[in-house]
Each structure stands twice: as structure tokens, then as C-alpha cells.
Simulated assay, not measured.
Amino acid sequence: MKKEKKQHRLLSISTWVLILAIWYLVTNLGVVKSTLMPTPQRVWNTFIVVLNQGYNGIPFMKHFGMSMGRLLFAVVLAIVTAIPLGLLSGYFSRVQAVLDSLVNFYRPIPPMAYYVLLMFWMGIYEESKVMLLFLAAFAPIYISCSAAVGRIHHEYIHSAESLGANKYQIFFNIVLPACAPEIVVGIRTAVGVAYTTLVSAEMIAATSGIGWMVMDAYTYMKTDVAFVVIIIMGITGILLDAVVCKTGDKLVFWTDK
């Protein structure tokens, strides 16, 4: 197992070394125009400048902090509402009949389509962005929770009832632990969906944030800035996913790895 992990890590590192080498060669040898793809050296220098001097008069960490603040607030709001509603939906068919139809109606719609309505109703400031991210994150968590309850073996519940357990005990000792692994999967999916939606929303209607930085860089043909922000987005996405996975492993310790 350890040997496999080592090989996996080595392959991942080798892949990125190869990508960086190709990038370095095609840009430094002039195969691709610098206006379309800047050199790694130029991107690194731009990163240092943006980190030290900010972008458009705003410190970079303020842009990054605004984006992460929107994301965190919306995801936490989705978690505290979607988990109980999803579990109730899986447990009570009448609740499912009401909520499933609503979630399944808006879930396939691209978030940017109803973002227009949210901007009409709530303005172009933080409220509409947070609501957009909340709706994007809500559906995956709700569906995971509802489906997880449906997969619980009824024998477990019947056995607990026959031993005198009440509904409260059944929920916290059987239903919730059995659903926990799928809840973590739902949260992991929700964070990814909300993160991509966040960047799209900031590209359309924002004056700060990492998504806005990409759009502004595109407007003024600053490809080096665009590369810097895209790389930061990718690394941030990996770190967010790793945090959710590690937290899930710690909290749901009774499942097989």
C-alpha cells in the first residue's frame, strides 16, 4: 500500500514537471506568442508583484479573502440547512414530495441563468452572490442526504425499535452515522460546485475577488495576471478538497478507507 502511494505521488510529480518543462520550452523558444502564453519566469514575477503590490490598488489577499468569505458563508449556510432537510426528506415521504420537486426543478438549470433573477431581486452586491452560491451548494448536499437515508437497511431500524429505542435514539445512533459518509461526499461535491460558480459570478458582476481579476486581466490583455490567478484558483481548489476529505476522515472514522 505504501509502495503504491509512493508510485502514485511520483507519477503526479513527474506529470507536473513534464507540463512545466513543455511550458518553459514552447514559450522561451518562441513557439507560442508571449501575448497568448507568457513564460513561467514572467508569470512568477507577476505573482510576486501582485502579492506585494496588489491588483488595481487592492491588496491581493483582500481579493482572495472576499472570494473565500463568500464561498465559506454560502457553503456553511447550505450545510446547516441541506443536511437536516435532506435527512427529513429521506425519512418522511411527505417532506420528500414537497422538497424533491423544488430541488430537482432548479438543480439542472445552470446557476448563471438564475443569477440574472437574483441580481434583479437582490442587487449586484454580496446578497445575490451568496444566494447563488448557497443554491449551488444546497442541491448536492440535500440529494446525498436524502439518498443516504433510503439506502439504510430497514433491519437496523426494526432491530433498534424491537429493543425499545425511540425515534430520537434511532436517528442519532443509526440514521446519522449510516448517512455520514454520503453526507461528506455531498459536501465535497457542493464545495466544488460552489467554487466554480463563485468564479463565474465574480466574472459577471463584481469589483473584487479572484474571478473579477481574471475578467479584468482578459479585458486589458494581461495574460500573465490571468495565468497567475488561474494557477492560484487550481491550487486553492485542491486545498479546499483536501480539507473537506481530511475533515471527513476525522469525523467519519468508522468507515473503510
Rank of each mutant, 00 (worst) to 15 (best):
10 L>R: 11
156 Y>E: 04
23 W>K: 06
245 C>L: 14
62 K>V: 15
158 H>T: 10
81 T>K: 07
103 V>A: 12
59 P>L: 08
62 K>C: 04
52 N>G: 10
44 W>I: 14
58 I>Q: 13
23 W>F: 08
161 E>K: 15
143 I>V: 15
112 M>K: 02
152 I>S: 03
36 L>V: 12
69 G>A: 13
40 P>N: 12
7 Q>E: 14
138 F>L: 00
32 V>D: 05
170 I>H: 06
192 G>W: 00
85 L>W: 06
205 A>T: 03
60 F>K: 03
45 N>I: 03
221 M>I: 06
229 V>H: 06
103 V>P: 03
165 A>C: 11
227 F>Q: 04
117 L>K: 08
51 L>E: 03
239 L>S: 09
70 R>F: 10
252 V>I: 08
20 L>P: 11
250 K>L: 04
205 A>D: 01
222 K>C: 01
67 S>N: 11
245 C>I: 12
164 G>K: 11
134 F>P: 01
142 Y>A: 02
64 F>H: 05
94 R>V: 12
45 N>S: 14
242 A>S: 14
188 R>H: 13
254 W>H: 05
221 M>S: 10
251 L>E: 08
143 I>S: 09
134 F>E: 04
223 T>C: 06
79 I>A: 08
123 G>W: 05
48 I>Q: 13
14 S>L: 15
38 P>E: 11
128 S>Y: 09
135 L>T: 00
31 V>G: 05
213 M>V: 05
127 E>C: 03
125 Y>C: 00
96 Q>E: 15
199 V>D: 08
239 L>H: 09
131 M>D: 01
153 H>W: 05
145 C>F: 07
226 A>D: 09
81 T>M: 11
211 G>R: 00
29 L>M: 12
151 R>W: 12
56 N>G: 14
116 V>A: 09
